Computed example of a mutant assay.
Amino acid sequence: MEFDKLKEIIAEVLSVDPNEITLETTFVDDLGADSLDIFSILEEVDDAFNIETEIEDADKIVTVGDALEQIKKAIG
């Protein structure tokens, strides 16, 4: 469920097909996201899951799978 919501957010922010997003998809290399895009995605994720991503945790997010792990950790 979290993965589907995450894909929806990424697809909306980056205007990409959600069906092309996998856990291994990288934000920068595969999706062409820049730091502002990633910040926007994390903002949407924080709102959608009612969590708060720490800046130092955000720096570790390279793939969609990394982002999903952060969400799961934050929501317990």
Score class of each variant (00 low, 15 high):
residue 9 I to S: 07
residue 74 A to Q: 05
residue 4 D to S: 14
residue 22 T to P: 00
residue 46 D to K: 08
residue 36 L to T: 14
residue 22 T to E: 15
residue 12 E to I: 02
residue 74 A to P: 00
residue 59 D to V: 00
residue 6 L to I: 15
residue 11 A to I: 08
residue 4 D to G: 15
residue 15 S to Y: 10
residue 66 D to H: 07
residue 58 A to C: 04
residue 72 K to M: 08
residue 33 A to Q: 10
residue 13 V to G: 00
residue 55 I to P: 02
residue 55 I to R: 04
residue 9 I to E: 05
residue 7 K to S: 15
residue 41 I to T: 06
residue 33 A to G: 13
residue 14 L to V: 08
residue 25 T to L: 11
residue 17 D to F: 13
residue 27 F to W: 10
residue 65 G to I: 01
residue 67 A to R: 01
residue 50 N to E: 14
residue 59 D to N: 03
residue 54 E to W: 03
residue 15 S to H: 13
residue 49 F to R: 09
residue 25 T to H: 09
residue 1 M to E: 15
residue 29 D to T: 09
residue 70 Q to D: 06
residue 25 T to N: 10
residue 43 E to M: 11
residue 16 V to Q: 03
residue 38 I to D: 01
residue 13 V to D: 02
residue 31 L to K: 03
residue 65 G to H: 01
residue 25 T to P: 01
residue 56 E to W: 05
residue 61 I to R: 00
residue 55 I to T: 09
residue 71 I to V: 12
residue 58 A to T: 04
residue 56 E to Y: 08
residue 34 D to K: 14
residue 27 F to H: 08
residue 40 S to I: 01
residue 31 L to Q: 06
residue 27 F to G: 02
residue 39 F to A: 15
residue 20 E to Q: 15
residue 66 D to V: 01
residue 8 E to C: 03
residue 57 D to P: 00
residue 68 L to V: 06
residue 7 K to P: 01
residue 37 D to F: 09
residue 36 L to W: 08
residue 13 V to S: 03
residue 24 E to L: 12
residue 27 F to D: 02
residue 25 T to A: 12
residue 58 A to N: 04
residue 63 T to C: 03
residue 1 M to K: 13
residue 44 E to V: 03
residue 38 I to A: 11
residue 24 E to C: 06
residue 26 T to I: 06
residue 3 F to S: 14
residue 72 K to D: 06
residue 44 E to L: 04
residue 32 G to Y: 11
residue 34 D to Y: 12
residue 1 M to L: 13
residue 64 V to L: 02
residue 57 D to F: 00
residue 19 N to I: 08
residue 54 E to R: 11
residue 68 L to F: 05
residue 14 L to E: 08
residue 31 L to E: 02
residue 20 E to C: 08
residue 61 I to K: 02
residue 40 S to D: 15
residue 45 V to L: 10
residue 18 P to S: 09
residue 49 F to V: 10
residue 39 F to S: 13
residue 28 V to Q: 12
residue 19 N to H: 15
residue 56 E to A: 05
residue 30 D to K: 08
residue 26 T to R: 14
residue 28 V to H: 10
residue 42 L to A: 08
residue 12 E to L: 07
residue 33 A to R: 11
residue 3 F to T: 13
residue 61 I to L: 06
residue 46 D to P: 01
residue 10 I to L: 06
residue 30 D to Q: 09
residue 28 V to W: 04
residue 76 G to K: 07
residue 19 N to L: 14
residue 61 I to P: 01
residue 59 D to I: 00
residue 51 I to F: 10
residue 36 L to Q: 12
residue 27 F to A: 09
residue 38 I to V: 13
residue 69 E to R: 07
residue 2 E to P: 03
residue 64 V to R: 01
residue 52 E to V: 08
residue 35 S to Y: 09
residue 38 I to K: 14
residue 50 N to D: 15
residue 1 M to R: 13
residue 62 V to D: 03
residue 46 D to V: 05
residue 23 L to F: 07
residue 3 F to C: 05
residue 32 G to I: 12
residue 15 S to A: 13
residue 28 V to N: 09
residue 52 E to W: 05
residue 43 E to P: 03
residue 8 E to V: 03
residue 49 F to K: 11
residue 23 L to M: 13
residue 20 E to I: 14
residue 18 P to H: 09
residue 10 I to T: 04
residue 73 K to H: 02
residue 69 E to V: 07
